[in-house]
Design a binder for these strands. Structure first.
Lengths: 212, 212
DNA sequence: AACGTTAATGGCACTCGGTGCCAGACCTCA
DNA sequence: TGAGGTCTGGCACCGAGTGCCATTAACGTT
């Protein structure tokens, strides 16, 4: 067809990775996630099939981007906050996570719609959330005595913060949600922090006080 | 060897489904989950490849069995307990879930070992847990006023009960865990119930916001 | 200007999980 | 004996994901 042009290079100004992501989102919205093949995406983006997997490790990863970098940031923050109250550090970490979603609202919303319809994507989202929860509970356990009571408190607190985070995020994404979800997030974090503070305090004073 | 028998039917007394599950667990333990193919399993079980997918919808489902039936039982229990205190009903539902794991200890332990090593299986387990959490939070929301405050309380409470459940289950499965985890479960459920009761009660009061 | 190096892409072949479809075996009831 | 239902074997097929190699463009070096 076009003997001299490499093969089919449409806009060519946009990076290939972005072209792939945009084509994928458009096709997912138009004809659904599962009935969109990698061939469809790469054809629409004007690249070879093999190129897709050089930019995204799997089909799902087109939708779920840089959770790893957010996780790293959260870990870094928690690692460098050994002098603040554990509960407050976890609350701040939850804020960090929330802000990472708010940084790209339209993509977060598109992902939310997809995860509500496709079971595989919902499971994947849940797995990502579990990793955040794991980071929070690991941090809390590191700040608490090594008892089963403290471990229970750490897991319950981490799960509560994550649940609060998710609930505020969902209400924001729901049609008719508030424009700025930050007040709701602060209220939720305060509620959970007030609830968990006595639990954490109780589990801290075991045999000896937890020094820093 | 056995010229008249159809093709390779080893014990033949055991139901095919059980043969497949047993062969799968043995192969997973021997050579790992990901390097075991469906062909390996079906060959070991002496059945055709197609037969595997008639008994299990996917490779992962050999390990994760009847979550659906447990979910149905939990839903049924919650649906028929509209007169008890919501928190107590959720605690009892958590007990039901825990007992379903304790019903088959060796399988639960084998699954635990696999989910700690294989990321795909861990994600799948997390997804199952999320479904339990969803059932609990849906129930709580149905028993609470339709406010965002109550929705937050419902999600936090459901997540806390599930987190407590998982923590007790993990400590039981960990090498050196207690023989009977029920006392630990009761203690954990009491802790969470005591913690969540005021939150639920506060969110039930329709009119005023209880600024603590 | 010719050259080697590197990074990114195209393209092919292959594995493996999962599905649709049909034929054959067996069992049951009429 | 025969009709109907259930289960299995077996084949072809699809789509996600990987390994490997050739090609191409970009860039600095001499």
């Amino acid at each position: 067809m076009y003997p001299n042009i490499p093969p089919a290079a449409p806009p060519a100004g946009e990076p290939i990775r972005d072209r792939l992501a945009r084509a994928a989102f458009e096709l997912f919205a138009a004809q659904g996630y599962e009935s969109t093949t990698i061939d469809d995406i790469t054809t629409a983006a004007g690249v070879a099939r093999r190129t897709f997997f050089r930019h995204f490790p799997s089909k799902e990863d087109v939708i779920f981007p840089d959770h790893d970098s957010v996780l790293d940031r959260v870990r870094w923050y928690l690692g460098s906050s050994t002098n603040t109250e554990p509960i407050f550090a976890v609350a701040e970490a939850t804020r960090l996570i929330f802000e990472s979603f708010m940084a790209t609202p339209e993509q977060t919303l598109a992902r939310y719609r997809l995860t509500r319809e496709v079971a595989a994507l919902r499971d994947r989202e849940v797995a990502s959330v579990a990793r955040y929860e794991r980071v929070l509970s690991d941090y809390l356990r590191s700040r608490l005595p090594n008892t089963s009571k403290a471990a229970l408190a750490a897991h319950v607190a981490a799960a509560s913060f994550v649940a609060a985070h998710n609930q505020v995020l969902r209400e924001w994404l729901r049609p008719g949600g508030a424009k700025d979800p930050r007040p709701a997030l602060e209220a939720a974090l305060t509620t959970v922090a007030d609830l968990m503070t006595p639990l954490i305090a109780r589990s801290s004073r075991q045999s000896s006080q937890s020094a820093v």
